[in-house]
Every structure is written in C-alpha cells, then in structure tokens.
Computed example of a mutant assay.
Amino acid sequence: MKHFIFSSAFFLIFLFSEYSFCQINLGQSVDSLIRVTNPRFFNGVILVSKNGESIYEKTHGYSSLVKKISLKMEDQFLIGSISKQFTATLVLREIQAGHIQAHQTIGHYLPDFKQRWADSVTVQQLLNHTSGIIHWDNNLAYEPGSKFSYSNINYAILGAIIEKTSGQTYSVLTADLFEHCKMKSSTVPPGSGRKSNHKKLVKGHSESGNKKYVEENILNLLDSPMMGVPASGMISTAGDLAKWMSCLHNGELLADSTYQMMINHAVIRSHRWGEVKYADGIQVDHLDGITELSMSGYVPGFISTMIYYPKTKVSIVILENISPLSSDMNRVFYFHDQIRKMVRTSF
C-alpha cells in the first residue's frame, strides 16, 4: 500500500514538473518571438489557457501607435471573421429549437429576399461557404454545394434569417450568448448613427504601401457595410474569447448532436497551413493526428486568431490591432502561426 502511495505521488510530481517545464519553455519561446521585427513587428495580446486557467498571457505594443498607450489584457478588439462562429452558433441553436432546417433555402425564411438565387441556396450552404454567392446582385459563381468559396455575404444573410426566425435582433441574440458564457467585455457595434461607448476598444491601424501604419477611424469602420456585423464586426477581449471556447466546446451552448453537426459539415479549403476543413463557422483539422478547432479574422486595423485543442483543453487567443498588407497572409499571421506551432509542441 505504501509503495502504491509513493508511486502515485511520484507520478503526480512527475506530471506537475513536466507541465511546469512546458509552461516555462512556452513562455520563454513566445517572449523571444514577439521581440523580433522581421518579417514585421508584433502589436497585440496573447492568452494561452488550459482547462480555463491562464498558463501564459502577454501584452506587447500599444493600443494607439500614435499616442504610445500600452496595451492591457482587458482591452477590446474587433475580432473580424471570428464573429462568424457566434453567428453559426445562433443558427444552430435555432435549428436545435426547430425554428430552422438546414436544408431549407434562403427564400423559405426571407420571402421578401429579391435576389434570383434566394430559392437555390440552403442554410447549410451559407454556413460552410458552399453557396456560390460572391456578390449581392450577380449570378451564382457555381452550383450551390459544389465547392468552397469564402464570402461575408453568407453570414450577413444568416444574421437576417435568425432575426426573422427568433423575432429578436442580432444584438439581443448575441448578448444572450455573452451572458451565458460570462463574457462581460464582448458586444456588437452600435447601429448606424448611434454613438459608440466602447471605452476599452483599442485603435486599429492599417499598413500602407510604405510599411507605415495609418490609424483607422473606428466609428466609421464599425458602421461600414463591408464589416457585416454577423460576419466580421464583433468586439471582444482575449479573456472573453477563451471563455467562449470553453463554453462552446464543453457542451454549454449546444446539444451534442447539434455540436456534431457544427463540426462535421466540413468542406476542404485551401489554407496557408495546408489542406484544412471549414465546417459551420469553424475550421476543423486533424493535422499530424492533433484535433484542432480554430478561426481567424482580418479586417482593416485588426487581425485575430483563436484555437482550441479538445484533447488537452488548451486554447490560444491572439489579437492584434494592426493589419499588415493582405497580399502576403503568411506575413500577416506570422506570429500567430509561430505561436500555434509552439503550443502544439509544448502540449
């Protein structure tokens, strides 16, 4: 019995020591990485968590490059296309409630929708970007369901559908998600003409052709039609996004059968990581035998990444308030991808 107790204690000490070593090694590696300036500089916040507990967090840079105000972990960022995951979750909750059927068309839920393809594209095809919709008023680019083509329009339409089927505004629906997951610093932008009260929302900066960064007008950006709030216009923090991943992937928002629907309706897309899959507002990969659930975002002035590893319950959130030129996405997400590799190696 004493031998068993000793062995168990030794095993626990070994596990704790190994975990501590991984944590220290990760911290040192990331600290060193974000100090480099080639191929660009890093300006943002990083949060790595395990089982909901922070194991590494760091701010590096400024909330305003002009005023040189240092970033804080509680600062708010525009999260770009990560917003799509919230919209997809709302759609799936409507499916779960019996208000939406994935195989039904846009026209079924939005009968006043005038586009010629309204009765040809289904909710499911909007969710996984296989709709063929590239522009609002043009013909479809291809037969719906035949291939993947990323488009914010898909999620703008989904936002309109869930407002119709639920009888609630998108703002109210997302506020319910935030409250459920205890995300106290997340919100959607105010409507056009309304004053923003996002006191912790950092300034966004877009790279110009001479590698200088120009400050974006946030209020104009939030109201811009290109944003499409259900597709790319949500505001959040690193801590709130870590809470979101824990909430979503541990069964607090969707029944298991609905969650399986979310991650299994995957289609292949080309990506800088290689051949990955996009499901319902989420990338689902099994590269090197590691299951990885992710989303990223790019809007003028901001880039973002969030990744969740269900086996280890490790999550990564990286938010930057600069947007390098989109002509080289490897450069844009250089730090995000390097940190991803470090976490995959450490845990």
Rank of each mutant, 00 (worst) to 15 (best):
D31T: 00
G44T: 10
C22A: 10
T37Y: 09
I13R: 00
G52Q: 09
I24H: 08
I46E: 09
E18G: 00
T37E: 09
H60W: 11
D31C: 03
R40C: 06
Y19G: 00
I55P: 06
I24F: 14
N38A: 15
N43G: 14
Y19V: 14
L12T: 10
G52Y: 12
Q23M: 15
S49I: 04
K58R: 12
S63L: 03
F42E: 03
I24R: 11
I5W: 11
N43F: 07
V45P: 09
Y56P: 14
E18N: 11
F11W: 03
N38V: 10
F21P: 05
S29Q: 11
K58V: 03
S8H: 01
F42D: 03
F14E: 00
S64N: 13
F16E: 06
I55M: 13
G27N: 01
E57R: 11
H60N: 08
K50L: 05
V30L: 04
F4N: 12
V30M: 04
L47Q: 15
A9Q: 08
S7W: 02
K67F: 08
F21T: 01
F41V: 04
S20N: 13
L15G: 01
S32R: 05
K67R: 05
F21E: 11
F16V: 13
T59E: 12
F11V: 11
T37C: 11
S7H: 00
K58D: 01
K67E: 13
N25G: 01
L26W: 00
F14D: 00
N51S: 13
P39D: 02
L26N: 01
K67C: 02
R40V: 07
I34R: 09
Y56D: 12
Y62V: 08
I5A: 14
E18K: 09
N25Y: 15
H60P: 07
K67N: 06
I34S: 05
E18P: 00
V30S: 04
D31N: 06
C22Y: 07
S32Q: 14
N43W: 05
R35E: 12
F42T: 02
S63P: 05
T59Q: 13
V48Q: 12
G52P: 09
V45A: 09
P39G: 01
R40Q: 03
L65S: 11
S20I: 04
I55R: 00
I55W: 01
S63H: 11
D31A: 06
N38K: 14
